[in-house]
Amino acid sequence: METRQNHQQHIQICFDCAAACEHCITACLQEDHVMMMRDCIRLCRDCADFCKLCGSLTARDSEFMRQFMVLCADVCDACADECSKHDHDHCQACAEACRRCADDCRRLSANA
Rank of each mutant, 00 (worst) to 15 (best):
M1E: 04
E2T: 15
R4F: 12
Q8H: 13
Q9Y: 06
H10L: 14
I11M: 12
I13Q: 05
F15H: 15
F15P: 00
F15A: 00
D16G: 00
D16C: 00
C17P: 03
C17R: 01
C21H: 04
C21L: 02
C24H: 01
L29A: 05
M35K: 07
M37N: 05
R38I: 13
R38A: 15
D39L: 05
C40S: 09
C40W: 01
R42P: 02
D46C: 03
C47Q: 01
C47M: 01
D49V: 08
F50D: 04
C51P: 04
L53Y: 15
G55R: 10
S56W: 10
L57V: 03
A59Q: 13
R60K: 11
S62L: 08
E63S: 12
M65R: 15
F68Y: 15
F68K: 10
F68C: 05
V70L: 11
V70K: 06
L71H: 12
D74Y: 02
C76E: 10
A78P: 01
A78V: 02
C79T: 11
A80H: 01
A80I: 02
S84I: 08
D87L: 14
D87S: 14
D87A: 15
H90L: 11
H90C: 14
H90I: 11
A95P: 07
E96V: 03
R100G: 08
A102Q: 03
D103K: 12
D104H: 12
C105L: 06
R106Q: 11
R106W: 07
R107Q: 11
L108K: 10
S109C: 09
S109L: 02
A112V: 05
A112H: 04
